[in-house]
Structures are given as C-alpha cells and as structure tokens.
C-alpha cells in the first residue's frame, strides 16, 4: 500500500475498490430482492426472523470484539478503559431516558478522558 503520502491523496488501491464494490453489491441485492418479492412473501415469517437473529448475533459479535480486542488504532487504548467507557455509555443512556446521543457522547468522552489521563486498569 502507498499510504505514506497521505491516504487522501494516494491512488486508491485496486483491491480495496473491488472490496467496496462487492460490499455495495452484497448490500443492494437485498434491497432489489425486496422490491422484486414484495407482495409475494410474508416478511414476518420464520425465515426472516432467523435471518434477523443472525444479523443481530453477527453485529453483537463485532461490537464485543471491537471493544474487547480491537484491531487498529484502539489497540493503543487500555482494555479496562474501554470496558469502563462502554459501561459509562450504557449508564448514561439509561439515566438520560434511553438517549442514544447522550449515551454515545458520555462513552466517547470517558474513553478520551481516561486515555488522556493515562489510566490503565489491567
């Protein structure tokens, strides 16, 4: 990769373009199928419930992995700080009557503050 000159200016890597186009196609195909099949199948049926469960399971797996064992820049942060910040986000979310905005803000500020203070818990 040629990111040394700054990724905003470098030539996009062809591989990444392929990945992004494939990802967009893997997303759009469901929307197009939805149009094609509307009125013909029941979206409340068990197949969709199963598919919905898989999507939830997959995203929960990703979220947990991003917090517990992140790949990339968050590796530089402390595991304890990430866990505490996630707990702060959940606490603020419920205290603020399920405000996603305030919860996310509190969790993010907690990570920034604790990281700046150089706190390490584990």
């Amino acid at each position: 990769m040629s990111e040394l000159s700054g990724p905003a200016l470098s030539m996009p890597s062809l591989w990444l373009v392929v990945v992004l186009i494939a990802g967009a196609a893997a997303t759009y195909v469901w929307r197009a199928l939805g149009v094609a099949l509307s009125g013909r199948i029941d979206p409340a049926g068990p197949v969709f419930e199963w598919v919905g469960c898989i999507a939830y399971g997959l995203l929960a797996a990703l979220i947990a992995r991003m917090i517990v064992m992140p790949v990339g820049p968050l590796e530089a942060t402390d595991l304890g700080v990430r866990l505490v910040s996630a707990a702060v986000a959940v606490a603020a979310f419920y205290l603020a009557r399920k405000s996603i905005f305030l919860g996310v803000t509190a969790g993010t500020l907690s990570l920034i503050g604790l990281t700046m203070a150089g706190v390490t818990l584990f």
């Binding site: 893997a26 997303t27 469901w30 929307r31 199928l33 939805g34 149009v35 099949l37 509307s38 009125g39 199948i41 979206p43 409340a44 969709f48 598919v51 919905g52 898989i54 999507a55 997959l58 995203l59």
Partner: peptide, 10 residues
C-alpha cells in the same frame, strides 16, 4: 449483516 434490508423493503 444486511439481509434485514429485504424484509424492510418488502
């Protein structure tokens, strides 16, 4: 992850 879009469109 995105299969949920199909029932939404439907």
């Amino acid at each position: 992850t995105n299969a949920r879009l199909m029932p939404m469109v439907i």
